[in-house]
Design a binder for these strands. Structure first.
Length: 479
RNA sequence: GGCCUCGUCGUCUAGUGGUCUAGGACAUCAGGUUUUCAUCCUGGAAAUCGCGGGUUCGAAUCCCGCCGAGGUCACCA
């Protein structure tokens, strides 16, 4: 394959369609586009592919841009920032496509097609019945010039199709998969311009990628089979063919392409759940690539430095939320108290906690968090009143023992306060009365926190303060 | 169905002819960190390298065939 891109500035792009929520698969692809571009001091471009007016969703573009901003993947050029190759929205580039598609027609690489949908459906039906691959039969390729002119004059609806040569091997060297050969026998005369005047993806993507000087097309595996169409278009124009790299697709548990039915595919969901963007990106990196030193906790900066296509994974990884949770926990634990607090406040349902009180609580909670959204559940007993689980408590000791113990604890706190000394005295008390230490402290924990698991008891009591602690303890024995 | 891609522990992966009785991580199990949970530490179980042939003194690694999974075959991207 002839290629002059080697000396050009590296430029990659991500080209999402504004058809719904910002998709996790889009982010996955973009980290590779971004890393490769940055590694080579190149540019990473965000282009919006909104040529399908039926599936267009209002506000989707803004959501995509915000999701990328959250993830920290900042494009060098995009519809919102602009750039040298504006506009970056395909719907605003219609005049460009028209011009180039007309050029293709004049070069005889493309042709007008006036076939009705009914006729198309019919030949399709026959082909399927005869078990041959459904393909357009090139009927309109042989239209006479005056016929075409008349149809155009009559405003007869038309599309423009790519004239795909018959039985030709299209060869390209994928940066991840090596040489791929696809014969044009399996390729239809792709529509380039739709009746509504919009180009199809295939036309727009090639024209834009060329005009925007994209050198490396890094995208999902689902595009492999249409790559020959794109190559044919590049060749028809006489343009340099960019490098292609096809990433494997993220999978559901059942191995199908990752989808809403089985997974949370919206980037927004991960933000709402309280995944840190750095953790999500780290996880996505791991799914598609392996570090030469085997390191699994890796930042985007490090990825940019170490990335190479040869270490990109070929198999389609199953999205495993358990591992993401682990990574997220690692990142949360690495946060400074100040940063944790800053990040967690949007997730807090308790809005009027004293700052210093929140600090004390967070110190006890940080290493127990896997997701920021877990915070409310984890700290509720510090803030709200609790239900004392009497059944659990009296399942451990008898009512009489419990009353005796609690009374003593209150006495100890009255006398010594909450500190290591008083804890030691509690322990001795338990020992002297032959209470199992674990059980002994468990009933205190249950009485004070309302739950079987909590941060270390002494610390918890200390943060809660002796007034609240005593109030909860007495509530248990007074009812 | 045609074409294309892929196939190592449950999951993500390392591995590019001998150092592989296949290494790491998550999850899981057991123990420890003189009270729970979490963190941390230690250890265990877990992959006949999809299957069958070949090449070779020697194959997860090379070749052939098969099987399985996925993708794609739209006036969607």
């Amino acid at each position: 394959m002839k290629n002059n891109n080697i000396q050009k500035k590296v430029r990659t792009r991500i080209a999402p369609s504004p058809t719904g929520d910002p998709h996790i698969g889009t982010l996955y692809q973009s980290i590779f586009d971004y890393a490769f571009a940055k590694q080579n001091n190149g540019d990473f471009i965000l282009r919006i592919e909104d040529t399908d007016r039926d599936r267009f969703v209002k506000g989707a573009e803004e959501n995509i841009i915000n999701a990328f901003k959250w993830a920290g993947i900042v494009p060098d050029e995009s519809p919102s920032q602009g750039g040298k190759y504006s506009p970056y929205r395909q719907s605003e580039r219609l005049y460009i496509y028209k011009k180039y598609i007309n050029e293709l027609i004049s070069r005889k690489s493309a042709y007008y097609c006036f076939c009705s949908k009914e006729r198309l459906a019919k030949i399709r039906e026959i082909q399927i019945k005869n078990k041959v691959q459904p393909k357009y039969d090139k009927y309109c390729l042989n239209l006479k010039k005056d016929e075409i002119d008349k149809n155009l004059e009559d405003n007869k609806p038309y599309v423009v199709r790519l004239n795909v040569p018959n039985d030709t091997d299209i060869i390209f060297d994928d940066l991840i998969r090596g040489r791929i050969i696809i014969n044009t026998k399996s390729i239809d005369d792709q529509i380039l311009l739709k009746t509504d005047g919009y180009p199809t993806y295939h036309a727009a993507v090639v024209i834009d990628d060329h005009l925007m000087e994209i050198t490396h097309i890094i995208r999902g595996e689902e595009w492999i089979s249409s790559t020959p169409k794109h190559i044919l278009i590049y060749k028809a124009f006489g343009w340099d063919i960019p490098y292609f790299a096809h990433l494997s697709l993220l999978r559901n548990r059942d191995k199908s392409k990752v989808s809403k039915r089985h997974n949370n595919t919206s980037i927004d969901w991960y933000r709402e759940e309280g995944y840190l963007p750095e953790a999500l990106i780290n996880y996505l990196i791991l799914l598609g690539w392996s570090s030469p030193d085997g390191k699994e906790i890796i930042s985007m900066d490090e990825f940019v430095r170490k990335f190479s296509f040869s270490r990109v994974t070929k198999g389609g990884p199953i999205f495993d939320i358990d591992k993401l949770n682990w990574i997220n926990g690692v990142y949360i634990r690495q946060l400074s108290l100040l940063n944790l607090k800053k990040l967690i406040i949007p997730y807090l349902k308790y809005k009027d906690i004293k700052s210093s009180y929140l600090d004390s609580i967070l110190k006890l909670t940080q290493e127990r968090l896997k997701k920021l959204s877990e915070i409310n559940d984890l700290i509720s007993f510090f803030i709200e009143d609790i239900d004392i689980p009497k059944d659990l408590i009296y399942g451990i000791f008898s009512i009489n023992d419990v009353k005796k113990i609690i009374k003593n604890i209150i006495l100890i706190i009255d006398k010594y306060g909450i500190n290591e000394e008083s804890e030691q005295i509690m322990r001795e008390y338990a020992l002297n009365n032959n209470y199992k230490i674990g059980d002994f402290f468990m009933i205190i924990r249950l009485a004070i926190t309302g739950r079987k698991a909590s941060p270390p008891l002494l610390d918890t009591m200390y943060v809660l303060g002796d007034k609240k602690v005593k109030e909860r303890l007495s509530r248990l024995i007074n009812t």
